[in-house]
Computed example of a mutant assay.
Amino acid sequence: MQLLAQQLVNGIALGSIYALFAVGFALILAKMGILNVAHGTFATWGALASYYLVTERGLSFWVALALGVLLAGALGVAADQLAFEPLRRRGAGVFAPIIASIGIWIVLLTLAEAHAGPTAVSYPAESVPAEPFRFLGLIMLPAQVISVLALVVVVTGVHLLLTRTRFGSAIRAVAVDPRSATIVGVNARRTLIAVAFLAAAIAGLAGILGALSDNNVSATIGEGLLLKGFAAVVVGGYGDIRGAALVGVVIGVLEVMSSQYISSGFRDAITFGVLLVVLVARPQGVFGERQLVRA
């Protein structure tokens, strides 16, 4: 029982990182209508930037984390304004933004690989909190606690932003119809820039916390997060931030439990097999609404 509880804690902590990334990805997909496959590289660059600031500039981990998140957000805005905004103005449809995002992904990933090199590195031991502590007999690392707390704060903040503020109303209006939103006084372009920044910044935070938890900083951090985050968004329910976060946590728990009790070699197959069963049973996602198509 003790081992089960410990692995549950480990799974929730891992899933919190997946869930963080999924929240940002859900914002882009649902509020901007873009399947941005470059989203994982924002997480990668957030982690690389924070590592550089800690090791080369001597900044504290917390300052480096904040600056890494801001850099990731800035990359999200740059990608939106350089690639997606021109396509929106021209009414380019669904597939052109996907191709554009693939181009952004390849460019940013190539630059990350050139910057980071082939060898994974880790944060200096003295720069990050690492001393484990016990609670009710369970061992918890500071990185795990930080990840869970970050998820709670981000999900709560984003949910309140979207549902309780005037800016959230503007985001929802632009997501439904940018032209109509503009007619009633919403600055659609400014709103989309803010969404792009917020989503990419959350991805950067997920990348930094993932690197901290794994003690591994490399150019491929965002690639694994992209797959898990996309699965969480789809299974959680299109556009439901809380659903994406919950399924992200479930993915982490499934991975850890299957590795412990079945086989680490099959953990991805087991995890996505379970998600496939859920999706077949409920195609609109766990928290999504069924879409009715009328002739």
Rank of each mutant, 00 (worst) to 15 (best):
V286F: 13
I146L: 06
R190S: 15
G24C: 11
L14P: 04
E289V: 14
M32G: 07
G248I: 01
R242H: 06
A66K: 03
F84C: 09
R134E: 04
A231Y: 13
A13Y: 00
T44Q: 00
I202D: 13
S218V: 03
A125K: 05
A150G: 03
N216T: 11
N187R: 07
I106A: 14
Q2K: 09
T271N: 08
H159C: 07
L108V: 05
M140E: 04
Q260R: 09
L109E: 15
G185W: 11
A26D: 04
V94D: 14
G68W: 01
L275D: 04
T220F: 14
R242S: 06
A201C: 04
G11F: 07
L141M: 15
T41W: 04
L3S: 12
V256N: 01
L53R: 00
G91Q: 07
V158R: 05
F84Y: 07
A5N: 10
V286L: 15
S264R: 15
E131N: 03
L67Q: 02
T41P: 06
I102R: 10
V174R: 02
V253T: 02
V277A: 05
A38Y: 03
I241A: 08
G248Q: 01
T44N: 06
R189A: 15
A130F: 07
V256F: 00
L254K: 05
Y261H: 06
G117A: 15
G210M: 13
G117K: 12
A72G: 11
I221P: 07
Y123Q: 11
G224L: 05
G91C: 09
G73M: 05
G11L: 05
V107D: 08
L205N: 09
L227S: 10
V280D: 01
R166N: 14
Q291H: 15
P142Q: 04
L151Q: 05
A116M: 14
S258R: 11
L8F: 15
V274N: 06
A170L: 10
W62G: 08
